[in-house]
Design a binder for these strands. Structure first.
Length: 817
DNA sequence: GATTAGGCTTCG
């Protein structure tokens, strides 16, 4: 059965690996035939097939097979014992309910099947066992699962030949499937009238679209299509489709389109039946025009569509045409636009430009002339994609569409030249609200500009129309009547020579003087580049940019303070008080007898605090040498103190090293406790690089006993406080993530040590950030920043940090010094 | 086998 000729892999990769595949097939019980050979033809003759509907835990599985088309393929899961698991769902094409079942495959078969099988393949499984489906109560798929593991497990895979492009008529379908015995019988899909839907069923339905939203991004992982359909039963049903891929969503262009959906689940929501897609979901749509071609719109390569379907579509078309259920289609040309109306515009995209992160400008036309002057939105040539020149008297053919918020993501992907339908576009009169348009108000007062507001209400959105759609054909006919003299479209290139209608964008740095929040202090001769240019530039060390601050992290600015080890370059957060207090508490119990020979011990009273115990006495050690010099209080070692007590005693001594007793000797507290307290400042050691031991510091000839001398004496690698802020920059062309690190202190005019010790210094950082990025303020309110960026490689990618840049007095609070 | 949204205009 496993002949060379049955393994006809058609892809290049397949050809290259044919030998390996064939060799693998000899040991792995997964058999693949591509290009029309049926799975059944490979199966040994002694095996008999049973329908999926008859599979139960009582089934005698020996010498039995189950066959079905792959509706779903899960990920290959690695199991703890080095094995693999793969779950697929197969559907029997001509079966009665329940006709689908989950097949769970283990081991090497799972691994190989995962490589070999694709959606829509037909598989035959043998050597399985039957178990209860743990998810049947939820998915209603089948009460049982099939399990394949061990030597007996075997899967035969066959792949239908690639679908013919474009129309797949019933005739073509049956001929291409003729070799596959199981598919030669016409698959029967039954469609439930919308009035007969009952909750919690998986069904197939037909309907006329009466409302729809183009797929929009959800908060979850998918895009969501929302639609409402109706049929001759006059029942209206809401449908929600979740798919991660845009192409899997129904291709709905307008109200009145006909939709067919397979495998949608009925649910009760707000006392009405609603539909949601479920495993194996597919949708096909048709234009709703009576008498028009019945051309299925789908990205699925393999659909069932026959004369019966054609009849259903035509019946729905005629029925809908006789109803008044469809709202008047608000699709009007530019020539019919009135200010303030919402409408759908079918147009061609000529060029586009990103205005800021929440707004993209689309320049479009539909070949008709708007009766109102069309507002010219200012854009500099460098940021526009696709440009054109146009005779002055024809300028009223080009409409400026400002696309906001959630629609920007899709607008970014649009290519000039493509045909679009923009849904729920609004014509807005006047231009006074547009940023940067400082022109003659009276001249602009009569102007019209188009807004696609944020959100998806009323189906607001954009759809790319296929070239063969009737609306696009019509559009091409109109726009094609213009000669090059009238309208010279130059796509996908930038031509700054054709500048007469372009001017400066509101957020473009160059000609508009705006207050700048920072200045560079470097002597590089670099010219400023846009963020897009920076990203395109090859490896370079230094860039100068002009940008605004879009956002930053951490928002809680005290978290910008880090502890950095010079030796191992490790960086850590400043430990929080709870963690530190816990180490102190644990050390309080370790106060056994110990007496370093170089120190005198004594007792000290802890001053009363707001909450702590009053009048407690703790042991203190002082260096002989320091005492001899009259500097005994400059450095003390405190045994068995809490964090709170240490803080209270910090005003009595210059330096405090908290200690514990360990095996008759003094020892430092473990990280994350600071090893040293000096006034309000705490000093920490690197856990990795320190070899701490409690010793007497050598202070001969030393003027002041500071943290460095103490750290050195104790074998502690001192952690330095540093500031680290991540900023997201933005200009008209792009955004860029940069760090403030090396030069953060000069940028903020503050030292990290001060930030660690006092509130005033922390407030200064807050003030600077608030001036660069005012809370609640719009981008327009934010100052432009002149920045010097240096590029460096980290973790295999290029990172950027702000260097040689300081905030200007306008942005920074005045320096009291 | 989770979650998403659950129509219902607008900051610009």
């Amino acid at each position: 059965m496993r002949s060379e000729s049955s393994c006809q892999f058609e892809t290049e990769r397949g050809k290259a690996s044919r030998l390996t595949e064939t060799a693998a097939a000899a040991v792995m019980p997964v058999h693949v035939a591509v290009g029309g050979a049926s799975a059944g033809s490979q199966v040994p003759a002694h095996l008999t097939r049973i329908p999926i509907s008859l599979v139960s835990t009582d089934t005698d599985c020996s010498d039995k097979t189950v066959q079905g088309k792959v509706l779903h393929k899960g990920p290959l899961v690695s199991l703890e014992d080095d094995g693999f698991l793969l779950k697929i769902i197969i559907q029997e094409e001509e079966g009665s309910q329940p006709d689908s079942i989950s097949v769970v495959v283990f081991g090497g078969v799972a691994q190989r099947l995962s490589e070999a099988v694709r959606l829509e393949d037909v598989v035959v499984a043998s050597g399985f066992t039957v178990g209860k489906s743990p998810t049947f109560h939820k998915d209603k798929l089948h009460p049982c699962n099939l399990y394949l593991s061990g030597d007996a497990a075997c899967v035969y895979v066959s792949r239908p030949p690639p679908a013919e492009p474009k129309t797949q008529t019933a005739n073509k379908r049956s001929s291409s499937h003729a070799e596959v015995p199981t598919a030669a019988k016409v698959p029967k899909y039954s469609y439930v009238p919308l009035s007969e839907l009952k909750p919690e069923n998986v069904v197939n339905v037909y309907g006329v679209v009466v409302f729809f939203k183009q797929p929009f991004r959800t908060r979850g992982t998918d895009l969501c299509s929302s639609l409402k359909i109706t049929d001759q039963s006059n029942k209206k049903v809401c449908c929600t489709i979740f798919c991660s891929k845009l192409e899997d969503h129904p291709k709905i262009f307008q109200v009145g389109d006909i939709i067919r959906m397979h495998r949608v689940k009925t649910r009760l929501y707000n006392d009405s039946i609603a539909l949601v897609n479920t495993f194996g979901f597919s949708a096909v749509t048709f234009d709703g025009t009576v008498g028009g071609d019945v051309e299925p719109r789908t990205s699925s390569r393999n659909i069932h569509f026959d004369e019966e379907d054609r009849r259903v579509v035509e019946e729905l078309r005629s029925w809908a045409a006789a109803q008044t259920l469809l709202p008047p289609v608000p699709r009007i040309p530019l020539s019919a636009v009135q200010p303030k109306v919402y409408f759908d515009l079918t147009c061609q995209l000529l060029s586009k430009a990103s205005i800021d992160s929440t707004c993209t400008l689309l320049r479009v036309w539909d070949g008709t002339r708007c009766p109102h002057p069309l507002l010219k939105v200012a854009v500099e040539p460098g940021i526009s994609e696709g440009t054109y020149s146009i005779a002055k008297e024809r300028q009223n053919l080009v409409a400026n569409v400002l696309v906001y918020d959630n629609h920007v993501e899709l607008a970014r992907q649009l290519k000039p030249g493509s045909y679009l339908r923009i849904y729920n576009l609004r014509a807005l009169p006047g231009a006074s609200k547009l940023p940067g348009n400082t022109g003659n108000q009276s001249e602009e007062a009569d102007c019209v500009v188009f807004h696609l507001h944020g959100g998806t209400a009323f189906g607001r959105g954009i759809r790319i129309l296929p070239e063969n759609s009737p609306n696009v054909q019509e559009l091409k006919r109109i726009t094609g009547s213009f000669t090059d003299d009238d309208f010279d479209v130059v796509l996908e290139q930038d031509d700054s020579a054709q500048l007469e209608i372009w001017c400066t964008p509101p957020e473009s740095p160059d000609p508009v003087p705006v207050d700048c929040g920072t200045e560079r202090s470097c002597s590089h001769g670099e010219a400023a580049v846009t963020l897009a240019e920076l990203k395109r530039a090859g490896p370079r060390r230094v860039f100068h940019v002009r940008a605004q601050l879009r956002s930053y992290e951490p928002r809680r600015l005290h978290q910008a303070l880090k502890l950095h080890c010079h030796k191992c370059q490790a960086m850590q957060d400043v430990p929080d008080d709870d963690a530190v207090a816990a180490v102190f508490s644990a050390a309080c119990g370790e106060t056994g007898p110990c007496g370093p020979t170089w120190a005198l011990s004594g007792q000290v009273d802890v001053p009363a605090g707001p909450s702590g115990p009053c009048g407690r006495t703790v042991t203190v050690y002082m260096s002989d040498q320091l005492m001899a010099e009259g500097k005994g209080k400059d450095l003390v070692y405190l045994l068995g103190v809490t964090l709170e007590e240490t803080c209270r005693l910090a005003s009595a001594f210059q330096s405090i090293v908290p200690v514990r007793s360990s095996g008759g000797r003094l020892a430092l507290l473990d990280p994350p406790a600071p090893f040293l307290f000096r006034g309000t400042r705490r000093h920490y050691g690197c856990g990795r690089c320190s070899e701490a031991q409690v010793k007497e510091p050598c202070v001969e000839g030393v003027e002041a006993v500071d943290e460095r001398i103490i750290a050195e004496a104790l074998g502690v690698q001192l952690l330095q406080p540093r500031l680290l802020v991540k900023l997201e920059l933005q200009d008209a062309t792009d955004t860029l993530e940069v760090f403030l690190w090396r030069d953060a202190e000069s940028f903020f005019h503050v030292s990290a040590e001060d930030v660690a010790a006092n509130q005033e210094a922390q407030d200064r950082i807050r003030l600077v950030m608030d001036s660069l990025c005012p809370p609640g303020g719009s981008m327009a309110a934010r100052p432009w920043l002149d920045l010097c960026l240096t590029a460096y490689a980290a973790e295999g990618r290029t990172c950027y940090q702000i260097c040689n840049t300081v905030t200007r007095p306008a942005a920074a609070p005045s320096d009291p010094a």
